[in-house]
Simulated scan of single mutants.
Amino acid sequence: MKPTIRDVAKMAEVSISTVSRVMNSPESVIESKRARVLEAIEKLQYQPNSFARGLIYKKSFTLGLLIPDIENFYYTGIIRGMQDACIKLGYSLMICNTDRDKNRLLAYIDAFHEKQVDGIVFASDVMFPEYYEKLVRCKIPFVLLSTHSDEFEVPCVEIDDEEAAYDAVKFLIDLGHRDIGMIGFNHENSISGPPRYQGFIRALEEAGLEHNREKIRYATHRFEHAYHAAHELFTDYPDTTAVFCVADEFAMGVISYLKDRNILVPGQVSVVGFDNLRIANMFIPKLTTIAQPMYEMGCRAAEKLHELVTTGSVEVLREKMEHKLIVRESSRQR
């Protein structure tokens, strides 16, 4: 039978709480008691588990992550960053895929509450009032990732989506393109869709290219939807020479559509994506794209949640991380 913290306390002739303090803040225990506890731990080969720590501190040392689509490549970097940060901070990570289904998401919050997670990272979705009220009622600290709330004061980690989209479209304009289209997010509750649209429009207006405002078609987070959106765009506007896509998967759908119609990328049409997924550098042609620091965002979300859990507040409420334009093969001078 594995030794318990009670066995260590008995052998060292101290209380269980003293053993706990030796393991977590040894400087708070006098040297004589600390030495006895350490000797008992060594003799018994005692290894504390998270359940025992939870009993002592009334914490589970577990964080929850709510994501809308686990099949989306965007979340691989987020998850990896959170996982690595959790390991450093002493947490386990539980991941739930919501499919943007309200009832499922609310049920997951209940499940996290039952499992006594210490906090939740809520990623890439709208913070509806019923979500906020449920989390507050359950007294679960939470941080938003790749999203924000204008209605509630909630800590968040994201990039400046409008500025990033502006930079992408400005790049195409600087390459000499004057007929520019966009493939955007097609659902009314999109968080990043509206600011990326605004960035597209702002770049056009600055350059006097307002005639492109109508050259927008929408897709719903999937390659095949972007393929069909590209068909609509080029059917209505065949003279389009550049396309800004609000996701790398959309850019791949557009390029595939153009290839099937023997339209060269970037020879005849330049395409810029958004995210800088790992596959963006493997696709042919390699994607020019806006890079989000996905791994770092996952790390920061976990760190910010840890700060909130341990102190009750965060130093920076709304944290904006830097994006970067990565120029590859899918774009060229007009």
Rank of each mutant, 00 (worst) to 15 (best):
A107T: 15
D84P: 13
E133Y: 03
A111E: 07
K88W: 01
D150V: 11
E153P: 13
L66T: 07
G54N: 07
L89F: 01
R104I: 11
L66Q: 07
G81H: 01
D69P: 07
L105H: 05
A165H: 07
I109W: 03
Y57W: 04
S50C: 06
G77P: 06
A168S: 11
L144M: 15
I56V: 08
E158F: 14
D161I: 11
F112C: 02
R53P: 01
I67K: 08
E153G: 02
F122I: 05
F112Y: 07
E158K: 15
E114Q: 14
K134I: 07
M82N: 02
F171P: 13
S124K: 07
Y75K: 15
F73T: 14
P48L: 04
S146I: 12
L93K: 00
I87Y: 10
G64T: 00
V121R: 09
E114S: 14
F112N: 02
D160H: 15
K88G: 12
I56G: 04
E158C: 04
K139D: 12
G119C: 06
L135V: 02
R80T: 03
L89P: 00
D69G: 05
N72C: 11
F171H: 15
D101S: 09
L135W: 04
Q83T: 05
C86M: 06
P68C: 11
I120F: 09
I56D: 05
E151G: 07
Y74V: 07
S146H: 15
R104C: 03
I159H: 12
S92N: 10
L89A: 00
E151D: 15
T76F: 12
K115W: 09
V126W: 05
